[in-house]
Measured scan of single mutants.
Amino acid sequence: QVALSRTQVCGILREELFQGDAFHQSDTHIFIIMGASGDLAKKKIYPTIWWLFRDGLLPENTFIVGYARSRLTVADIRKQSEPFFKATPEEKLKLEDFFARNSYVAGQYDDAASYQRLNSHMNALHLGSQANRLFYLALPPTVYEAVTKNIHESCMSQIGWNRIIVEKPFGRDLQSSDRLSNHISSLFREDQIYRIDHYLGKEMVQNLMVLRFANRIFGPIWNRDNIACVILTFKEPFGTEGRGGYFDEFGIIRDVMQNHLLQMLCLVAMEKPASTNSDDVRDEKVKVLKCISEVQANNVVLGQYVGNPDGEGEATKGYLDDPTVPRGSTTATFAAVVLYVENERWDGVPFILRCGKALNERKAEVRLQFHDVAGDIFHQQCKRNELVIRVQPNEAVYTKMMTKKPGMFFNPEESELDLTYGNRYKNVKLPDAYERLILDVFCGSQMHFVRSDELREAWRIFTPLLHQIELEKPKPIPYIYGSRGPTEADELMKRVGFQYEGTYKWVNPHKL
C-alpha cells in the first residue's frame, strides 16, 4: 500500500502544474464570482478556492472578487462561507491571508454602469489591468444573457486571457439551449467557454479513460460480442427537503440524466481518441451522441416518491408533501431510460440510465454486464461477469466473477477481482471535483468540460421526450421513500436483457 498525506498529494500536483506551459504561476489572475451571495458560491466555490489557495495550487498573485446585487462586505462573505471551509486552528494565518486577497463589488446584473465599476475595481488591483480574468457564473440561467453581454462589453482583460465558467442547466430543451449557446458564442470563442459538469471532475469518471485505453485486457472485450448491457446509475437517499420548488422546474431527467449520466455513457462508449488533447476527446464523445436516436417512450419509466409510513423524519414525507412543490405536480423524481448506440461496436446493446431521489442508498456507478459463458459445464450455477466502476461513495473498480467454492467439488461461487483505489492508495485525500475543474480552467484544459456541439446532441436525444411529458403530463409511478424505485423499472431492465441475480454482496474494501 502507498500512504500519501494531503501535503504529498498537493506537492505532486504542484510539480505537475508548474512543469506545464499552460499554468502561468507568476502571472496575476483575477477570479470573479458572479452571484457571490448565492448558495453555490457559499457552499462550493469559495470553499474550493480556499482549498486550492491553502494547498498552494493557485497562481501566487490571485485575487478573488465577488459580485452580486446584495450590498455585502468581505466580512459578510466570510461569515456565510467559512463554515464550509473546514479550516483547522493551525490554518488561521493562512485564512487571514486568503481573505486579504478577497474583495466585493455590489451591482445589478443588467446595468452597464455596475460592470464599469467592477472593471475599475479590477484595474485598481495590483497589475489588475493586465491580469488573466476568470469569470464564474454562479447564477440562474435567466440572467446569463445580460451578464455575459455586460462582461464582454465592460470587463474583459485587454492583455491577459479571459475565460468564463457556465453552470448547468444549459437551457431547458434543445431550442433554449441553442439560443443560449448562440448568444454566448457570439461574445466569446469556444476556447474561452467552460460549461461545467462537476461529474466530469470526479476521480473515477476520469479513471474510465485510463482503464479503457491503457489496459490491453479490456480492449478486445469492450464491444457487443461480449457486453450484454451497460447500466449507469445515480441514486440519492434523500428527497427534495424543502427545495422542491427549484427541482420541480427541471425534474430528474434535466437535473441528472441528460448531463451526468449521458457524459458517463460517452466515456464508456467512445472510441479511442487520437490523443488526450481536449478536442480529440470531445470529438469522440460527440460521435457517440450522434449514434444515439431520440428516446422512445416505451423505453422510459418515470416515478415519484411517496412517504414511507414506517419511516422516520423526512422519510415519512412524499414529494408532494414538500411545501415548495406545486400542488398535484407530476414532475418525476425517478427515471429509467434505455438508449442504444447504433454503431458497429455497440449495435443492440442497451445502455440503461437510472437516477432518482429518496432511494435506498447513495450511489453513482457504471456497471457493464457481460454475456453468459458459452457451453456451460457447471449446471447453470454460473452468474454473469460484471465490471463495476463505483464513482461514489467509496470509489472502487471491481470485476464480479466466478471462482471455485472451497471444498471437494467443482462448485462455482461469485467473488470479485478488486482493482480499488483504496487498497493501493491508503487514506489518500484526493482533490474534489470542483478543485480539479477550476484548476483545469486556470490551465486552459477543456477536456472535462462540455463543448457546444456535445451539448446540442445531448438535448436532441431528450427534448422530444421532455416535450411529450410536458404536454401529456403522465402521472409518475409512486414508489416508497427509501425503496429501490418503481418495480416497473426493474421490469424494463429485465425486458431489454439485464439479469439481476441478487445473490452477490459487494464487500467494501475500504472497511476491511
Rank of each mutant, 00 (worst) to 15 (best):
R254N: 05
D255K: 03
V256F: 07
M257E: 05
M257C: 13
L261I: 07
L261S: 03
L265P: 02
V268A: 09
K272S: 07
K272I: 07
P273Q: 01
P273I: 03
A274T: 13
A274R: 13
A274P: 14
A274D: 11
S275L: 05
N277Q: 13
N277T: 12
D279H: 09
D279M: 12
D279T: 08
D280V: 13
D280Y: 10
V281P: 04
V281R: 00
R282A: 02
D283W: 06
E284A: 08
E284K: 09
K285A: 00
K287S: 09
V288W: 01
V288D: 04
C291T: 14
C291W: 07
S293Q: 13
E294K: 12
V295Q: 11
N298Y: 10
N298D: 15
N298R: 14
L302E: 06
V306D: 12
N308T: 09
N308E: 10
P309I: 12
P309E: 15
D310S: 13
G311M: 13
G311R: 12
E312L: 13
E312C: 12
G313T: 12
E314T: 11
A315L: 12
K317E: 12
G318L: 00
L320P: 06
D322H: 05
D322S: 05
D322V: 05
P323V: 13
P323G: 11
P326T: 07
R327N: 14
G328H: 14
A332H: 06
F334D: 04
F334W: 05
A335H: 00
A335T: 08
V338R: 09
V338M: 11
L339Q: 06
N343G: 07
N343C: 11
N343V: 05
E344W: 07
G348L: 00
G348W: 04
G348A: 05
V349E: 00
L353A: 05
L353C: 06
C355V: 09
C355M: 05
G356Q: 03
K357G: 01
A358N: 02
L359V: 10
R362P: 08
R362T: 10
R362I: 07
A364Y: 00
V366H: 00
L368V: 14
Q369Y: 01
F370V: 05
F370R: 04
H371G: 09
D372T: 07
D372Y: 06
V373I: 08
A374N: 15
A374M: 08
G375T: 14
G375C: 13
G375W: 08
D376M: 08
I377K: 06
F378W: 11
F378R: 03
H379K: 13
Q380I: 07
Q380R: 12
Q380S: 12
C382T: 14
R384W: 04
N385Q: 06
L387N: 02
I389G: 02
I389F: 06
I389T: 05
R390C: 08
R390D: 03
V391I: 11
Q392H: 07
Q392C: 06
P393K: 07
N394Y: 12
E395K: 07
E395P: 08
Y398P: 01
T399N: 07
K400E: 04
M402Y: 04
M402K: 05
T403A: 11
K404A: 03
K405E: 13
P406E: 01
G407D: 11
G407M: 06
G407W: 06
M408E: 04
F409G: 14
F410G: 13
F410T: 13
P412Q: 11
E413R: 08
E414V: 15
S415I: 05
S415P: 02
E416Q: 04
E416S: 09
D418Q: 05
L419Q: 09
G422Y: 14
G422S: 14
N423G: 07
R424H: 03
K426F: 08
N427K: 08
K429A: 14
P431C: 08
Y434T: 04
Y434Q: 04
L437I: 07
I438S: 00
L439K: 11
L439S: 10
D440C: 00
V441A: 14
V441K: 05
F442M: 07
F442L: 07
F442N: 08
G444R: 08
Q446D: 01
M447F: 00
F449E: 03
V450W: 00
E454N: 03
L455E: 05
R456M: 07
E457T: 08
T463D: 14
T463Q: 06
T463E: 07
P464N: 12
L465C: 09
L466I: 11
Q468S: 13
I469E: 08
E470I: 07
L471R: 15
E472Q: 15
K473H: 14
K473D: 10
K473N: 11
P476L: 06
I477S: 13
Y479L: 03
Y479N: 01
I480Q: 15
Y481M: 10
S483R: 07
S483C: 10
R484S: 03
R484Q: 01
G485I: 00
P486I: 06
A489T: 08
D490Q: 07
D490R: 06
D490Y: 08
E491D: 14
E491A: 12
L492K: 06
K494T: 13
Q499C: 11
T503K: 14
Y504V: 05
